[in-house]
Each structure stands twice: as C-alpha cells, then as structure tokens.
Design a protein around this nucleic acid. Sequence first.
RNA 1: GGGCACGUAGCUCAGCGGGAGAGCACUUCCUUGACAUGGAAGGGGUCGCAAGUUCAAUCCUUGCCGUGCCCACCA
Length: 884
Amino acid sequence: MLDKTYRPAEVEREIYGAWERSGAFACRSDSSATPYTIMMPPPNVTGSLHIGHALNFTLQDILIRYHRMRGFDALWQPGTDHAGIATQMMVERQLELEQSNRHKLGRDAFVERVWRWKAESGGAITRQLRALGASADWSRERFTMDEGLSAAVRKVFVELYKQRLIYRDKRLVNWDPKLHTGISDLEVENHETKGSLWYFKYPIDGETGAFIIVATTRPETMLGDTGVAVHPEDERYQQLIGRHVILPLVGRRIPIVADTYADPATGSGAVKITPAHDFNDFEVGRRHELPLVNVFDADAKLNDEVPAAYRGLDRFVARKQIVADMEALGLVEKIEPHTLMVPHGDRSGAVLEPRLTDQWYCNAAELAKAAIAAVETGRTVFVPKNWENTFFEWMRNIQPWNISRQLWWGHQIPAWYGPDGTIFVEESEEQALASAAAHYGKPVGLVRDPDVLDTWFSSALWPFSTLGWPDPTRELRRYYPTDVLVTGFDIIFFWVARMMMMGCKFMDDVPFRTVYIHALVRDERGQKMSKTKGNVIDPLELIERFGADALRFTLTALAAQGRDIKLAASRVEGYRNFITKLWNAARYAQMNGCTLVADFDPSGCKVMVNRWIVGAIAETNTRVAQAIDEYKFNEAARVLYQFIWGTFCDWYLEFTKPILSGSDEGMKAETRATTAWVLGETVHLLHPIAPFVTEELWKHFAGRDMLIAARWPSYEAALLDPDAMAEMNGVVALISAIRTARSEMNVPAASEIAAVHAVGAASAARIARHQEQIRRLARLKDLAPVAAAKLPALTGKSVQVLVEGGTVFLDVADTIDLAKERVRLIKEAAAVDAEIEKIAGKLENQQFITRAKPEVVEEQRERLDDARAAAERLRTAISRIGAS
RNA sequence: GGGCACGUAGCUCAGCGGGAGAGCACUUCCUUGACAUGGAAGGGGUCGCAAGUUCAAUCCUUGCCGUGCCCACCA
C-alpha cells in the first residue's frame, strides 16, 4: 500500500540508482533505432547547480526521456568545462589562504594542483545533476581537457593556423589588470558609471596664453597623449591644424592633426589622442603616424614612461593627482558631471584597460560565413525564431576573436619559437622540433608560447570532439549532427555561434538542427539573481523541500517561449501539491483494488464514464506530444495538470465511486481495470517532466520493467469517443449548475435535498443514465423526471436551475429568499439577453452572412438558438416567482 | 544610436482574428473513508493608448506611452 503522502527525498536517490544500474541512460550506438542527440552544455567544473542550470537540464531531460520513450536511440552527451579563468581563480584563492601563490609554485606544480582540485571536488555539479534526475549517458562523460578533446583542440588550432585563419597580431586588446590577461570583446561588460568630463587647456607651442581645450573622462591617460585631433572642417581650429601643443605635466611637444574622428559637436570639438590606451585613438594615431606611448604596466599602474612624480601610482590615484596638478597650473577650464559606460571584466569585475600586446587571433569573419549561410538556408533553425536576428546581427559584424589568454590553466597554445623568433605551430613538440630542424638545417632548442586558449575555443568543438573527432568513430558518424541544442540566450555568441563556425568548418555540417533558446530565471520580482543581491534561489534547497519533480514541473510549467521566468518558492510548493494529488489518486485506486489487467482493451469499454476517460487520455497524449514536439513545454505541463487534476481526480474518480461501491460486478471490474490503465498511461505521459514520482507509482502498479525504458503510448483514433465526451460534459455542466444554485441560495452542502427535472428527452435519458453520479455529486436525495406542466409550484422553499434542454427544480428544506432568487435569475437573464443582442446583431449583418466562413455563421446561429432557449426558460422561471 | 521582447483579473502568466482563461491570492461554506499539500461555490478584467486593415480585432499593421534585455558608442 502506498504511504499517505509521497516523500520524494526517500525515493529519489533509490530510483536514480536503479535507473543508472539498468543502463537506461546509455545510448545504443549499435542499435537500428534512429538516433536522437543532445549535447549537454558542459557546466563549469567549478560550478554548482543554479536555477538556470535546473531549467536548462530539465528541458533537455524532458526531450531525452520523451524521445527515448518514443523509441529513439537517445544520446544525451554530458561533461564539464575546464573554465580556464574561473578555475584558475578558484585555486589561486586557495593558495592565497595558504600564504602562497601560483608564482611561488611554478607553472607545472600549479597545473598539477588544479588537476588535483578537479579530481577531489570537480564532480559536485554532476552529482547535483543526478539529484535533478538528469538521465545523461554518464558512461560517456567528457571533460574539455581530456586527452582526446585536447588533441582535437591542437589539431583545429594547427589547421586553422596553416590556413591563416589563426594568426598572431599586435593590437590593442581589452586587458584585465587584475587577472593579467587579455580577454575577448565578449567578455567585456559595460556598466553605466557616473563620472566627470574634465576640460583641460593644452598650451599652443610658440605662443603664450593660447590654448586648445580638450575634454576627457580619463585624465590619467593624458600622460600618454601623442596628439590632438580636430575636425578638418571645424572653422574654430583651422589655423591650428599642423601646429603643436606642449603636453602639460609631461612637456612633450605633440601635433594638432585634422581627423574626421573629432566631432565638432562633442566636448570642445578637439580631442586628445592617446593611441596606446584607447581603441579609437589607436586608429587615429595609425592614420597620422603618431607614436604610441604606453604609460601603464600590467597592473594598470603608471610605468617609467611618465614623469617621476607619477611613477608607480595606481591609475585612479594618478587621476586625482593629475587633476589637482592641472588645477594648480590653472589649466582646468571646467569640470562637468558625465555618465559614461565603463568596461569591466566579466570574471574579475576589474575596470579594463586597452593595452597593446601580442595575442593570437582567429579570423571569425571568415568562419562565420558558412555558419550564417546555414541559418539562412534553415539547416539550423532557432526556436523561437526571432533569435536568428540576434545571431545574424552579431555574426555579420563579427570582429577578430582574441583566443589567447595569459593564464596557466587551459590548453597551452601549440606554438613554439625558434632562436630567431620563427614560429612553429604543430600538434606536438616533437613535430615542432622536427619542423624547426628542417627549417634551420640543424636541431635547435624551442620555447613554447606560454599562453593558453580561450575556454570557448575548446567548447566550440564540443559537438564533435566528444564523439571522438578527429578519429572517424562510429559515434561521430551516428550522432553528428545533433538534433537540438538547448541553451540560454546569454551564450548564443560565446558558444552557439562558435560551435556553428567550427562545426561547419571541420565537420562540413552544422552541429545541431535546432537551437532552442529558453528563458532566464529571475526572482519573483523579476530581478536577475545574484549572490550580491542575495536573491538567489537554490534549486538544491527546493529539491530537498519539495522534491525534484515539483521543481521540474514548476520550471516546465513556467517555460513559455520568449518570456523570462519569475520564480518563487511558493510556486514550487503549489506544484508539489499537484504531485501529491497524483500520488493520492493512485493510492485511492490501489485501495479500491484497481490493478492493471494484462489483456485490457480500452476500446472495449462499455461503461460511458470509462469510454469518456479513455478518450480523454488519448486526447491528452496527442496534446502533450504535440506540445513537446513544438518545444511548448509549458503547454505540455498545463495539459497534464488539467487532465490529472481537473478531469481525472475531480470528475472521473468521483463518477466511478458509486460503481466501485455498487453491486454490478461487470461494471466494477471494467472500471477498476480502466482506472488502473488510465493511471498507468498517465504516468507514462507525465514521466518526462516528473520522472521520479511516476517511476515510483509505476513500480507499485506494474512492478516490472521500469518506466524510463517504457514506450510512449500510442492509441487508435477510435479511442476518442465524441458521444461520451458530449454526454459527460453535459453531466458535469448539470452538476455544476446545481452546485452553483445551492451555494448561492446558501443550502448547506451537507443537506441532501430532493429535486425534479423537466427536460427534453435527450437530456432526460442522460440524467437517467447518470442518476446516481448526479445525485451523489450534487447531493440530491432524489432526481425524478416530471412533465413541464407539472413542475411543482414555487413554495418559497425551492430553487429553479436552468440546464441544457430544461429545468431542474430543487426542493430546499429551509425557506429561501424569493426576492434574492428573483435577483439571481434576473441577473442571469440580463447576461443572456446581452449575448443574444450581440449575436443577433451579427447575424443581421448581411456582410457577416456573406463574407464570414459558413461554419462560423452556423456556429453563431446555434449559439443564438441556445441563448434564446435559455432566455425563454429564465423568463418562465422569473414569471413563476412573480406568480407565487 | 541600432536591435529584440514585453504591457491581458490583486500577483505570476497562458491564449491570439469570430463565446475573455489558468495557477496563486481573496471571500463564503465543508473534519462526506484518496488527498485540508484537500473539496464546493464566488467576486474581480473598457486584454497599455490611438488610428488603420477586416463582415468581425485582445489577437494583424502603424504610431504613441511604459517596462525589460542585447549590441554599439559617447573625447
């Protein structure tokens, strides 16, 4: 017997273990089934499960479980990402606690230390994924720094280098002074910051008391100024073009140049040019051959290029000092408040500095061409489709991708330098040495490039490197291209676009047919969750409190396309109640001896309610399947919720109670079998979303093969029974109408009252067939047919209920307020009259008759007839009150 | 500045050319043997505003107002 309440914590671990042991998660690469593949976006090895992961992995698990049940050879390829910067930072923090640092350790020992950390603590995230119920093929788990994946990285790097799609370049890069590494444009986060705009006076060379005014938001960079630019057509400055200024504090003589970059309408119209510390200035400097004066060191402290007074100062300290010194010299014209966008590193949060360095770049614009074409031609589609715009927008304006990082943890760049600086890019040191020997005509020593690759470089290869590429494995042939990628919009550029580029380049085909972009999970007020705000909702805590199924169902129910999810614990609680409801329904069925009957044929049901529920589950199946096929996860959840709670529990189980407690053994047997069968089907349909509770229930009912390995039900169309549907809907409407009347007339729910009805033949037959159910659910002592003319007189102790095809007359024990009853009926009549007027108006419109679709016109006619009949009955009822 | 969304019941959101929906919250009633993590009933909305298209607009188009996000840039 099932426990009174479902305790998820107790069963989930056990069930997960059973699934894993059964081998149900594993793909079957030797089977003849059609493959269905999802590449799991590898979470950072340092990560722990956050609510965004929970959504992401729940949706993938739904797709995988659903397709597995549909008979596909489902592969959900899991793994983790080495997350260069994040992981290195984490281990460095540990070293800090030990009063050590990576430099004391040395590179090899440090990398060794990171590997040790990974071995000891790197599995947290995958354990948490298991707690969520993720049915990934753990036997195929990969790590982006596994030997195989690293070999793929080296091969791709070497091939792109040889095709000149990877190259080394010296240009300004976004430099993180805290992490001491360059990063890519994508890793820059601009934050609006309140600052100032300082107007400085630069003295004109050769004149006294003549100045040109430049405005700046970053005074500290003036030490690196090597020019001043004005617009060539700016009349104010015509006579100054070609002349020079003496850079204050430094004393350097720098030219005034004409360049269209200077905007006459901005600031003073003249702009100071610091080519080594500003991306725009760099270009201007290049056009006018201005020298680059780098004034910062790697920490963004002022270096020896600046006057002694400023050397070694932090850039922000220097800013204050410079402003003070300029003011002392009387060279500050004015200071205006100014808000500007300041670039920060997405990992360190440090304010970035543009810095001139040698870095490795990837020609993304070239690689993007095939990826763009693939989306244009629909070989890969985005769901929702509007994300394609975002993809195109970025891909069509893509900049060179800085792929080198000045870190120690990651894939070290396979490039070696000879004594004269010649670069040898090879897949191994041996090959590099051989190439060098051939190049120099003798063996030479080489120095390897110390940099590592951007983490996203290796994850870009994930869809094929995990399948064994570059070896032509069976898995690679079978599972590539994958079916769908499920991810958040925040990594379209970081990851999706790059996988597209690399897949098209090295596999000659897209990495996935569909990209499903899901929402962002926010807190209940719509704020982005963050540790600093303290509004983080921990999925593991929710799993502990409510169970994994409740969390999964909640996220699924809220996962509407194109809208962010606002999550609150109370919502999870609500869906936990839903899980409990299902559990109790099953418990009830079990208590009533409802057991699965081996040769049960649902299409052979004779009892109307059974035919009805069987048809309803068939319809539910179709709707759930369609919703999942269309990635409308919220729709699938809604349909199931409504069926289980609103149809099966609220009505079917109530309808069948008289049968189960009755004496007709045939009906009883059929009903028990049907109840068990419907429950069995229900847990199948719900399993992808709520795998644990359904598996547990299935165990109790079927006691044999696990649900995870079961087939998705398919039914004959004949199971849908429109007659049963119409009949039971009518009964439901009748009961609801009586209940409403009782409630409004304050008839106590406990009191059984007598009723008679005067309705048409069809409705009368229906009432007769479901007499017992109606009496039970509407709490009637009796419900007898009577001729319309012989309806009892209103005594002040009765209520009239208008139903389809007639009137039900309720005999109320206590006196009711006739005036109130009259008001009730008049209110109802007014609503019906309004509807009649609306529909009649429509039908009188000749344009409507001729131009609307015939079935629409017919539908409106029927509605009008119904409304008129209802109005007629209401009028009769009202007049009967008036007469009494 | 460019782009993408979103404004529907108190809240969170579905729906999307012909009858305004759900969950939660709220009010009233109910310890009826599956379930109080429950049952029954109810109140509550000019579907942001304005034009247009249409026989018909919450739904399509345009504009406006408001909100959010992404990208770029502002010396």
